[in-house]
Each structure stands twice: as C-alpha cells, then as structure tokens.
Amino acid sequence: MPKPTKGPRLGGGPAHERLLLANLAAALFTHERIQTTETKAKRLRPIAERLITFAKRGDLHARRRVLGTIGDKGVVHKLFTEIAPQVADREGGYTRIIKTGFRKGDNAPMAVIELVLEPVSKKPASSKKSAARAETKVAPVEETQAEETTEVEETEVVEDADAAQADAEVAEVEAVEAEEAAEAPAEDDKK
C-alpha cells in the first residue's frame, strides 16, 4: 500500500493533484528541465521515474500504462523513443532536483527538476580487492636443500606481475633464504 503524503494536497482535490502532476511530467519529458516549486518537484520525482521505468520496458502494455497518466501521444512517443534509450544503462535516479532560491512574489522555495541523461560511468574496482586477488594468485616457492656454498640463488622476477605481487614474491624469497642461512650452520655443526 502506498504511503500517504503528508500535508495538504497540491491543487485542492485528488483529481486536480493527479492532473497537475501529469502535466508537470509531460512538461518535464518535453523540455527535459523545468522550474517549479520545491514541493511540486519532490512530488513529481517518483511519478516521473516510474514512467521512465515503464518506457525502458518498451512493450505495448507499458506504453498504455504511460498513456493512462500522460494523455499526449507525442510526449509518450518522445519518452519511449528518445529518453528511454538514453537512460537504458541507468538503474534508477533518472531525475535531479536543484534548489534555486525563492520566488520574488510569494517567497516560495523554487527548484529545477531535470532528467539525468548523461551516460553512466562504471566505478573502477577498488585497489584493496585487486590486491587481495593478487595475493591469492601468488605461486608458492619450492624449498630446496641448502648447499654448503654461500652463493645466493637469484629468482626470476616475472615482468607481468604487478607491484604487489612482486613485493610478495620478494618477501617469500627472503624468508626462504633466511631459513636456508639458519639451517646451514646447524648442518655444519653436525659434521
């Protein structure tokens, strides 16, 4: 069940409010940006976003549902053919409300409501997740028997590995070398 709105209706009666919001929605889809009072803009937002969601579906039933709210076939055609493809990748938030100050005559708070038609930019993967993936992909270093020579074996550094993976490999090699160095005097004592 829809949550009832607080305060008096916009226009007097419920039918007048429905018509007022339908006309505001038609003007928004025609001009893509309208200036109205802040209260009307806030009440218009859910209606406009629901109509855009219907337009994104694009089937005949959705077109008839939108025509039930907006009677102008030209506006509905523009909504389905021009606006819906522009917001196809967007998962919501099709409108933006910007407060513009107060009206000169009656000091009513004014706002601009506009369609958000910019393409959606995907967020890059966070560095913490990519570092965690790199740590899981590090191959374990094979342990070799320590020889009596004091030469240090150098490991090949893979050029493709990113910095985090290379640092992890260097740390593992140093740990292996430290273990070998600790084992070497113990073996000398046994002889």
Rank of each mutant, 00 (worst) to 15 (best):
M1E: 07
T5F: 01
G7I: 12
G7K: 09
P8F: 10
R9C: 01
R9K: 13
G12K: 05
H16D: 14
E17W: 01
L19F: 04
L21K: 09
A22N: 06
F29A: 04
T30D: 14
H31F: 13
T36H: 02
A41H: 06
L44W: 02
L44I: 05
P46D: 09
P46M: 06
I47H: 05
I52A: 06
K56S: 06
D59Q: 05
A62F: 07
R63H: 07
R64V: 00
R64M: 10
R65V: 01
R65D: 13
L67C: 02
L67K: 04
T69E: 14
K73A: 14
G74K: 14
V75D: 06
V76E: 08
H77S: 15
F80D: 03
T81V: 13
E82W: 02
I83V: 15
G93D: 08
I97E: 00
K99W: 06
T100D: 14
E114A: 10
L117G: 02
E118R: 11
E118A: 13
S121K: 14
K122L: 12
K123W: 03
P124D: 05
P124N: 02
S126I: 09
S126N: 13
S127D: 12
K129L: 12
K129A: 13
A131Q: 08
E135L: 15
T136S: 13
V138N: 03
A139R: 13
P140G: 08
E142H: 04
E143Y: 05
E143F: 10
A146V: 15
A146H: 05
T149D: 14
E154G: 06
E159A: 15
E183I: 11
P185Q: 08
P185G: 05
K190I: 11
K191P: 09
